[in-house]
């Protein structure tokens, strides 16, 4: 770029920023609709902000769930129809991404459950994709109207304890199915001895997701922290959270699945 033009552009950019800052501080705030305590409590419990659905009042995380599931299913259909039939032995960029995604979870399943892993691989793909995209969904900040007429940003589904419990219980169910297919009725016993597993998985997921949400809420709540910091906090925390939680839950599920689905002798079962 011409140095003169560059200088002009920089001056305009700085002036625009200054004007915007002045505008931000001079514009009167409409006042906070809720205190930080209320915002935090609602982020944890989802007691006040409900959304109407078929005559029921549901948490906003369910709407997030539907949006994510719809988008993922549409994407899966498009990939199935347009991409997979065109897959080649030497993959292109997109094929490589899909194969890496499926290959990563398949390998995780094979590594932790070498004797029985086909169904587990499929489940891990679902859980991994859901947790990752569910967490990243928070970044879009899609607005929705509550039953009280407020506008709220749709949260990540797993910041709702009900979603976390549902995923924890589903994972436990999958682990139990592995125990039954591997060891029959004895597999149920093997799985039930880890009865705390669904609770620990659910609450670990919920706690991890919620902590990220609360930190972000705190940052967004204060005007002073609204400059530049949310870019780092919002994007990096969310991205790290998404990756870490995806890995933790899929890894735990595959490890427990492998443990209970491994064919055991009568002696080992009685010892267990």
């Amino acid at each position: 770029m011409d140095p003169k033009k560059k200088k002009k552009f920089l001056i305009l950019w700085v002036v625009l920023l200054v004007l915007l800052l002045v505008g931000i501080f001079l514009t009167p705030s409409p006042g906070k609709s809720e205190t930080i305590q209320e915002a935090m409590k609602d982020a944890v419990l989802h007691e006040t902000n409900k959304i109407g659905f078929l005559g029921m009042e549901v948490n906003p995380s369910l709407v997030s769930d539907w949006i994510i599931i719809s988008v993922l299913l549409v994407a899966a259909v498009l990939i199935r129809i347009f991409a997979i039939p065109r897959f080649k032995d030497i993959p292109g960029k997109f094929q490589l991404v899909i194969e890496t995604l499926v290959g990563f979870f398949t390998d995780l399943a094979k590594e932790n459950s070498p004797h029985r892993n086909k169904f587990l691989g499929g489940y891990l793909v679902f859980a991994g994709v859901y947790i990752f995209f569910g967490t990243m969904f928070e970044l879009f900040g899609i607005q929705w109207l509550t039953t009280e007429g407020h506008s709220i940003a749709l949260p990540a589904p797993l910041t709702d304890i009900n979603a976390a419990i549902a995923l924890g219980c589903l994972s436990y169910g999958v682990i139990m199915s592995g125990g039954i297919s591997g060891n029959g009725l004895k597999g149920i016993g093997l799985t039930l001895k880890d009865f705390s597993l669904p609770i620990s998985m659910s609450f670990r997921l919920f706690g991890a997701m919620l902590s990220g949400l609360l930190v972000t809420e705190l940052v967004y709540y204060s005007l002073g922290l609204s400059f530049l910091l949310p870019v780092l906090v919002g994007v990096l925390f969310t991205l790290l959270h998404a990756i870490i939680q995806t890995y933790v839950l899929t890894m735990l599920t595959s490890v427990f699945y492998g443990e209970v689905s491994e064919r055991k002798s009568k002696k080992e079962v009685s010892e267990a």
Binding site: L72, I79, I84, F126, A166
Partner: peptide
């Protein structure tokens, strides 16, 4: 009720991803 609704969603997504993405790619 919400847990069941989430589970319902998960089963739909899990089945969809299994048959549309995981199985054909595998």
């Amino acid at each position: 009720q919400q847990i069941l609704l989430h589970l319902f969603n998960f089963v739909i997504l899990g089945g969809g991803l299994y048959f549309l993405l995981y199985k054909p790619v595998r």
